[in-house]
Write a protein that binds this DNA or RNA. Structure first.
Lengths: 260, 260
DNA sequence: CTAATAGTGTCTGTTAGACATTATCCT
DNA sequence: AGGATAATGTCTAACAGACACTATTAG
């Protein structure tokens, strides 16, 4: 970092505004969805934007992301395994027409139940959008007919966030952040398929998950009703492991289990 | 992002300073080294810090990183395959005792030749430090006796940068950013070994590199003198591929080729 | 019983690890 | 020739893809 010149004066330095934006992802109805809020004021009035806002002067970036998420989505309590990580920082001059704003993007993952409350505390409307409906070219079978306009560079941030989630599913046990406990192996596979936009081979998926030590912990109190009959699936909870090694083989969107 | 209140006034928002810090890595003398500059003024006077500095008000983050790198290291021209990417952003309150500074960390990779000029344009001293001498616990055989004091949270940033480089060697063709062209397969392996801090199996490494389409392009004008005799190694240049799929198997620091 | 879903067993093709062998230079 | 390094060939173990088969429920 550059040395401070003699006679250091904070006001001499270019004044930036620093914000956090959060790509909050969940899987509902078998679709990867992202939470967006409708902008009430200019600029980009009526466009949809990521939840986020200004970082307080004495606030850590991570804390700011949690606070903004709570304020704008109405989610008051986050689950134990709540996953929130930094994505990257967006700071191109002119990305906000009002002033120079540097935004620290984040990715957060939630299971569908806790993801239910979505009415923002401020008047602006908030709702889940299937990522495939945003016209970002991330899925093979996108329906781009009713794609909303995204504010600022938020289309880029959403795309980056989804790519991060997709990549991380390969080598980290973050699936468990997408599901409620207890869960079945099928629940986990559905997450992978929804996020990757591709079908996975059921038996090999099971073998892979169970072969990773500490990925999932089997529950004794098994036996769950299944819709339409069939052998009830065993139940699991998340284990202590955070890494998947060797990693999953990624499947390209639209592909089935044979990717090559 | 939060809406701007009515009567928007930039001065109302918390004033942040935004800086870039660059973890500039190279491999010289078989060791992974990072460029550090000695701080001339307070705070952390006499400590060693990453090259970096304040982002101009109309400057892109990436451009700021390139500019600061040039200013503080004296490197005027960067090679074609110059690799510079964002790492993550460090913004804990109090990380700079003077004011609230949010720093966007970057990682840059250079080959040893272009990495030679290192005298900074400002008076501060700049030199290469072997990463293993910094006492960061990243290598199995660290010599922490003469470890320098690192300013701010730069020890964390260096560690994060090295981890990023290590991880990226697994799935991206960034080795070629560490070497001068043309290069031999041995040159590439030495980079992997230096960055990972472990020995790799020579024959299998060659096979892996050559099996990735577009990783390296063989040169016809082969035949190079070898120190001490022996069959001259074939020469290669970097290809168009950017990804390595399937990825390399990572080897833990200190380990040899059999990692499990 | 049949239908449906969960879970197991096993064959096969690919690939990384290991090591032997050949190729090409230097002194 | 002898030593040294580069490059190739090949055996083996691990593992992903694929598919057949068994297990357990609902109706």
């Amino acid at each position: 970092m550059a040395d401070a010149p003699a006679g250091y004066d904070a006001s001499k330095y270019p004044p930036f505004a620093v914000t956090v934006d959060i790509v909050l992802l969940t899987v509902r109805d078998g679709m990867l969805q992202v939470l967006l809020v409708e902008r009430a004021g200019e600029p980009y009035q009526g466009s949809w934007a990521l939840p986020g806002g200004f970082v307080d002067i004495n606030e850590d970036l991570h804390d700011a992301a949690v606070r903004e998420l709570a304020e704008e989505t109405g989610i008051d309590r986050f689950p134990a395994g709540f996953h929130l990580e930094q994505l990257r920082t967006y700071g191109a001059p002119g990305r906000d027409p009002r002033m120079r704003v540097v935004s620290v993007g984040h990715v957060a993952l939630l299971p569908p139940t806790v993801a239910d409350p979505k009415a923002g505390s401020d008047a602006s409307q908030a709702r889940w959008w299937p990522v495939a409906d945003l016209g970002l070219g991330l899925f093979a079978d996108e329906d781009t007919s009713d794609a909303p306009t995204l504010a600022f560079d938020h289309a880029t941030i959403v795309a980056d966030g989804v790519q991060r989630a997709r990549a991380k599913l390969e080598y980290a046990t973050i699936v468990t952040s997408f599901v409620d406990e207890p869960f079945t192996i099928l629940n986990l596979r559905r997450i992978y398929e929804s996020v990757w936009g591709a079908r996975l081979h059921s038996e090999n998926f099971r073998r892979k998950v169970l072969s990773i030590d500490g990925f999932v912990e089997p529950q004794d109190a098994t036996g769950v009703p299944t819709s339409g009959g069939g052998r009830p699936a065993r139940l699991y909870r998340a284990g202590d492991a955070t890494e998947i090694y060797p990693p999953f083989q990624r499947v390209e969107p639209g592909g089935d289990q044979s990717w090559r």
